[in-house]
């Protein structure tokens, strides 16, 4: 484990006079949602820094988002090959040292394969690819990525995957519940057979969060759900880094 470089986030230090928060967005071969994620980061007011899976250098970002898609074609298991990329080795070290990391969909799968988050993702119980607006309840607002929500808040953001079924053993599930680490739960019906309706979880420290639905597709009223329920992920991390 290496020490984390001090955050570069400052209120007025940026070249544009805006908040100078750098959020890295990782691209693996087969990543699909990196551009939407970069856009969501910018809409929230931070600088989006593209990161390439074969690099080792994190370009001094303050936080990292692993976006959705089908990295390495989901070969072997979703996220299993990406997890061993040079960049992920650095991200795993930094995440253990406290750097905020958000994994969305395939990014969540990479985080479970990396064992930064417990459990695993499997094929949806009905075997269908699902693409719809999904209602969630925000269960934890004490993570780096959810502070801008209120506990129990219901949000609606897109869900689109075929390997979305969250599984873990009973002991792990009980631990997650007891420690308040179930960050999001599906509402109005479980879309994929995830145990205990879990849509997303956090690590013990609250800096690493993973979820299957896509907040980055719900940041502008014009597109997606027509709501901006996903913007809170990106404003949460921005405020946390600025106030750090």
């Amino acid at each position: 484990m290496t020490a984390r470089p001090s955050p570069t986030a400052t209120l007025n230090g940026g070249p544009t006079g805006r908040w100078n928060v750098r959020i890295g967005v990782v691209t693996f071969p087969g990543t699909l949602d990196d551009r939407d994620t970069q856009r969501a980061v910018r809409i929230a007011g931070a600088e989006a820094v593209p990161l390439w899976h074969r690099d080792k250098d994190l370009k001094q970002v303050d936080a990292v988002v692993l976006p959705g898609g089908f990295s390495y074609g989901d070969y072997l298991r979703a996220g299993a090959i990406s997890r061993f990329s040079p960049l992920m080795e650095t991200i795993i070290d930094q995440a253990k040292a406290g750097m905020p990391v958000l994994g969305i969909c395939n990014g969540f799968q990479v985080l479970t394969e990396s064992h930064l988050l417990p459990g695993a993702m499997l094929r949806n119980n009905h075997l269908h690819f699902i693409c719809r607006d999904q209602k969630l309840r925000v269960e934890s607002t004490s993570t780096a990525w959810t502070a801008d929500y209120t506990a129990g808040q219901e949000i609606s953001i897109p869900l689109k995957n075929i390997d979305g079924r969250y599984v873990a053993d009973e002991r792990t599930l009980d631990l997650l519940e007891a420690e308040g680490r179930v960050a999001f739960r599906y509402l109005d019906g479980n879309p994929n057979g995830s145990l205990r309706d879990i849509a997303g979880i956090t690590n013990e420290a609250g800096n690493v969060v993973g979820l299957m639905p896509h907040p980055e597709h719900a940041v502008e009223p014009l597109v997606g759900t027509g709501r901006t329920d996903g913007l809170g992920f990106f404003t949460s991390i921005l405020k946390k880094l600025v106030n750090a």
């Binding site: 499997l122 094929r123 949806n124 119980n125 009905h126 075997l127 079924r165 599984v167 057979g193």
Partner: peptide, 14 residues
């Protein structure tokens, strides 16, 4: 192989 306690919907479909 998936562990015995893990649901295997692909096997079920077959």
């Amino acid at each position: 192989m998936l562990k015995p306690e893990i649901l295997d919907p692909q096997g079920q479909a077959v």
